[in-house]
């Protein structure tokens, strides 16, 4: 099942609907890299609320989404990391640099708007 990517204003919103296999994670990565140009997006929100785990593979793919988008002129915010997933990531010692993170979609969009104005308080 591929992840739906919606366009809202200058932003793309990728809302993951269920647990993803490795190939689905890579598909999302490639789709987003392409759509940033296609829609001339300034920012991406990836909603991972429904993701069951973020392991080394998923973390690397998500970081790549952020770095690729940045090279194409867009910022990426990850929203909806569940508390148990966050705990597992800390114990695993995974990190998500250079991604921005926010609690939910609303906060994520606010982060993108702040970043666009030049205030980069939330970013790395």
């Amino acid at each position: 099942m591929s992840v739906p990517i919606l366009k809202q204003g200058d932003y793309l919103i990728a809302s993951i609907q269920s647990a993803l296999s490795d190939s689905e994670v890579l598909e999302l990565r490639d789709d987003l890299a392409e759509r940033v140009g296609q829609f001339r997006a300034r920012g991406i929100v990836v909603d991972v609320t429904a993701l069951d785990v973020i392991d080394s593979f998923a973390a690397r793919a998500l970081r790549t989404i952020g770095s690729t988008a940045k090279l194409r002129g867009a910022e990426t915010v990850l929203v909806g990391i569940q508390p148990d997933v966050a705990m597992a990531m800390v114990q695993f010692e995974l990190d998500l640099q250079p991604l921005h993170t926010a609690l939910d979609l609303e906060e994520g969009l606010a982060v993108l708007r702040r970043t666009a104005r030049g205030g980069d308080d939330d970013g790395p």
């Binding site: 069951d52 785990v53 973020i54 392991d55 593979f57 569940q82 508390p83 148990d84 997933v85 705990m87 597992a88 114990q91 695993f92």
Partner: peptide
């Protein structure tokens, strides 16, 4: 939380 730690290790 433990369930997620276990699922992540299994992955």
């Amino acid at each position: 939380t433990d369930g997620t730690l276990i699922a992540t290790a299994i992955s």
